[in-house]
C-alpha cells in the first residue's frame, strides 16, 4: 500500500464527503489526482456524533446563519439530513468516478469527524478535504478539521478551498531536503505543464540548488520556472500570497508544514498538498 521510503505513490485516495460545495470541489480534485496516479477513490461520509448528541439534548437550539432565527433541533431531523447527505455524497462520487473512469468505494461511519477520517485514512495514501473559503463569518468554524488533520494525519493531505481546482502551474518549495525532494517528485508527476519552483537557500548555494532542481525537472521533461526566496517562513508566506499559480505542494517536514506555521497555509487561499 505504501511506497518504499523516499518515494511517494498515491494508490488509494480518501476523500471526505458531506455533499457541501467544498466537499464537491475536493471530490473533483481527488478525482484529478487519482486519474494521474491511477488510484482508487474511497469516499467517506461521517455522521457527526456531535450533531446527533447536540440534537438529543432537550434544551439546545440552532441559531440560523445568517437569519439569526432560533429554532429547535430534532434528532430525527438530523438523522434524516445525514442520511440524505450520505446519499447525495455517494451519488456525487459515483458520477465523478464514472467521468474519470476510476475505481471507487463509499462508506459511511458515525463518530467524531476527525477521528473517523484518521481511522479510515489508514487504508489510504492521501486524504482530500474541502475547506470553506472566506465567506464564513469569522475564523472559528473555518479550517478546524483541516488544521486537526494537518496535525494528526500521517498520510499526505490535500486541502481544497471550495472555489479552487488542481491546475498548473503547480508551486513547489525546494530546499534540497528529502522532504522537499518528495514534494518535487509528486509535483513533477502531477504537473502536466508548468511548474514554479521556489528555491530556498543562502545566495551562495542557490546556483547549486537550482542545478539540482533543474536536473530533476529535466528528467521528467516538465517546463519549470525558478524563483529564489529567503529561508524566513514569513517571507515565504508573503511570496506565496503574491506569486501566481495554483496548488502548493509541500513536503511534510519542510518548515512551513510545522505546527506553528501550518495554520497560515489555510490563509493562502490556494490548494495545499502536504506530502507525508
Amino acid at each position: 500500500m505504501i511506497a518504499r521510503a523516499g518515494e511517494v505513490a498515491f494508490r488509494r485516495i480518501l476523500v471526505a464527503l458531506d455533499a457541501s460545495t467544498p466537499s464537491l470541489a475536493a471530490l473533483e480534485a481527488a478525482a484529478t489526482v487519482a486519474a494521474k496516479w491511477e488510484a482508487e477513490l474511497l469516499g467517506l461520509f461521517v455522521e457527526d456524533i456531535n450533531l446527533l448528541q447536540l440534537a438529543a439534548l432537550p434544551f439546545t437550539r440552532e441559531v440560523g446563519f445568517p437569519s439569526a432565527i432560533r429554532r429547535p433541533i430534532e434528532p430525527q431531523d438530523i438523522e434524516r439530513r445525514l442520511r440524505a447527505q450520505a446519499r447525495l455524497s455517494k451519488q456525487a462520487l459515483a458520477r465523478v468516478a464514472e467521468r474519470f473512469n476510476l475505481r471507487w468505494s463509499f462508506r459511511t461511519e458515525r463518530g467524531q469527524i476527525v477521528t473517523q477520517l484518521l481511522e479510515v485514512a489508514r487504508e489510504a495514501d492521501l486524504i482530500v478535504l474541502g475547506v470553506r473559503g472566506h465567506r464564513v463569518a469569522g475564523r472559528m468554524p473555518r479550517g478546524a478539521i483541516g488544521q486537526a488533520l494537518m496535525s494528526a494525519a500521517t498520510r499526505s493531505l490535500l486541502l481544497m478551498p471550495e472555489d479552487m481546482r488542481i491546475e498548473p502551474p503547480l508551486l513547489v518549495i525546494y530546499d534540497g531536503t528529502p522532504s522537499s525532494r518528495q514534494a518535487l517528485a509528486v509535483a513533477l508527476r502531477q504537473a502536466q505543464d508548468g511548474l514554479i519552483v521556489l528555491l530556498v537557500a543562502a545566495p551562495a548555494e542557490q546556483p547549486a540548488l537550482a542545478r539540482e532542481a533543474a536536473t530533476l525537472v529535466q528528467d521528467r521533461g516538465v517546463t519549470a520556472s525558478y524563483r529564489a526566496v529567503g529561508a524566513d517562513p514569513a517571507e515565504q508566506l508573503r511570496v506565496l500570497r503574491d506569486v501566481p499559480g495554483g496548488t502548493l505542494i509541500l513536503g511534510g517536514d519542510q518548515p512551513l508544514a510545522r505546527d506553528e506555521l501550518r495554520k497560515h497555509l489555510l490563509d493562502l487561499n490556494r490548494a495545499v498538498l502536504l506530502i507525508r
Binding site: 456524533i49 456531535n50 450533531l51 448528541q53 447536540l54 439534548l57 439546545t60 437550539r61 440552532e62 441559531v63 440560523g64 446563519f65 437569519s67 433541533i73 439530513r81 447527505q85 467524531q112 468554524p141
Partner: peptide
C-alpha cells in the same frame, strides 16, 4: 450545524 450554529455542553472535547 448544517444550517447555522448551536451550543452544547461538552466533555473532553465531545458533545
Amino acid at each position: 450545524t448544517p444550517t447555522g450554529m448551536s451550543f452544547a455542553p461538552t466533555r473532553k472535547g465531545e458533545v
